[in-house]
Amino acid sequence: MNKEKEKEDGLKELVLARIEIMPPNFKLSIGNFGTFTKQEMINSVKNEDEAGKQIIQMQINFIKALTSGELINTINKNDSYN
C-alpha cells in the first residue's frame, strides 16, 4: 500500500468514526446532495460517492482549521467582530 492510499484510508476511518459517535436521531442536510441519516452518511463515505466526497472534504477543512490554529484563533478573536 502506498503512502497516499494509506493517508486516504486513515482519513476515511476518521470521518467514519466521527459519524459513528453522532446521536442516532441526527441527520445532516448538505444542500443539493440531500439530507442523510448516519447510516446513509456512512454508506456514502464508504462508497466515495459525490456526497461521501463532500463529507470527507468538510472533514479535511475542519482538520486544517484545527491543526493550523485558525479555529481557536477565530474563536479567541471574536471581539474584533463587534
Binding site: N25, K27, L28, S29, I30, G31, T35, T37, Q54
Partner: peptide
C-alpha cells in the same frame, strides 16, 4: 461551500 446543518429528527 455547501451550506449544511444538522437536523434533530425528533
Amino acid at each position: 461551500y455547501p451550506f449544511s446543518f444538522w437536523i434533530d429528527q425528533k
